[in-house]
Design a protein around this nucleic acid. Sequence first.
DNA 1: ACCTAAACCTGATAAAAGTCATCTATTTCG
DNA 2: CGAAATAGATGACTTTTATCAGGTTTAGGT
Lengths: 238, 238
Amino acid sequence: MQRKEFPIDCSLCSHLKDSLFNGLQPEDLSRINNHKTCIQYKKGQNIFYEGTRPTGLFCINGGKVKVFKNNIQGKEFILYIAKPGDFLGYRALLSEEFYGATATVLEDAKICFIQKDNFLEVLQKNPVFMRKVVKEVCKQMGIMEERMAELAHKSVRERLAANLLMLKESYGMEGEDSVLLDIALSREDWASLVGTATETVIRLLSDFKADELISFEGKKIRVLDPKRLAKQADLIVA
Amino acid sequence: MQRKEFPIDCSLCSHLKDSLFNGLQPEDLSRINNHKTCIQYKKGQNIFYEGTRPTGLFCINGGKVKVFKNNIQGKEFILYIAKPGDFLGYRALLSEEFYGATATVLEDAKICFIQKDNFLEVLQKNPVFMRKVVKEVCKQMGIMEERMAELAHKSVRERLAANLLMLKESYGMEGEDSVLLDIALSREDWASLVGTATETVIRLLSDFKADELISFEGKKIRVLDPKRLAKQADLIVA
DNA sequence: ACCTAAACCTGATAAAAGTCATCTATTTCG
DNA sequence: CGAAATAGATGACTTTTATCAGGTTTAGGT
């Protein structure tokens, strides 16, 4: 498990514009920049573990990461899939708790780590940044509330369709007449995301494929008919 | 629908010590105090509606309130049950979105309303208070993540047991050898909380009663055997 | 107190989804 | 390259839970 560092300057980071650090004063950004460590991770490596104490903030520069909880039987439930520009691990950092979930690399990643103190100090002395962080956290919470209600009332089929559309928003690459989800998830990961068994996901994805709602492209999925997929998701009983 | 106001001074409020306003500078607290309106609500009245724009913050002085989302078929899912000292509606206020849920009074309530501007200004000029709010929001988020994973992987029986224990923490009144849940929820509300059908809740509660895990006391539930209930909740397959 | 509506309960049935077993395809790695 | 491990797929079966339909009890309003 080698830790390969790579050099990068926050102010030149191509994901700065998508990040919460966007708009930070140059002096604050350089403070962040000067106190960070950037490491390359391979698929399958863990960034942090549920039950451990956060010591800083992770900022994704490249690759994809899943954040999940394990239940007693070891079944995963995926809370988020993070992409470049996203912060990782700030929830537990700000609530001063242990990590509530584990983060594992889905696709080879470059991730910068900012020491807790540096991040918190920049946060404290910069009310505008603080306000942005609060806004983002509350927005995320709204998304979670939505997802929770779905989990409570929608069928697995509906949830799978909803998740396909959700990933289309974040990872969709527009083709002509269809959208490729630029993220390689195993059937097991799909099951962890939707909250169901792997076999059920396999069956439902085949159904969707048979109905020409999606097609498979290697490990990736192409969304052929978002509208009909939305109908599957929305429980439009009609 | 009469709006009956009642007079109260924040600094003398018996729930101040449980509230996020606790520790606020006297001048800030008095600013909040001077710009609030306190109203009495009857059971069944709504505080705010999903899809509308927040104009301020609600602070519960007495009674209980459920915050829920409605799905397309009109089935409710209860996100929180708020009690005196709790803030209501701050999530949407801080994320600058419309309300994502509806709030309805479960037990006659006294609720203070603080105009958005006043709250936000006190928040902005008071980094310590801001930090407390962030901490609380992130803590809530952790709770939601936990609940979401439960929803994804636990059976209805387990979730009902878990919710009984959860409400025991917030509303439990210790008796000798048992704990009364001091909150009157209808079977339908229990179903909305657990994420299941009303009939299923009825059956499972009867089961739990037959197993002498709980007993009924009017509309309230007495927890007789928290330990065995925890076993029901925890999915200790063994 | 009485009437009505709502809440609560029970049983029968059906649908959804989980589990288990097995088999095939695809990676991975020595 | 070939063996082994992992991922994907499919069928049979079981369990869980929702739904529907019918009851009874309780609560609220006049």
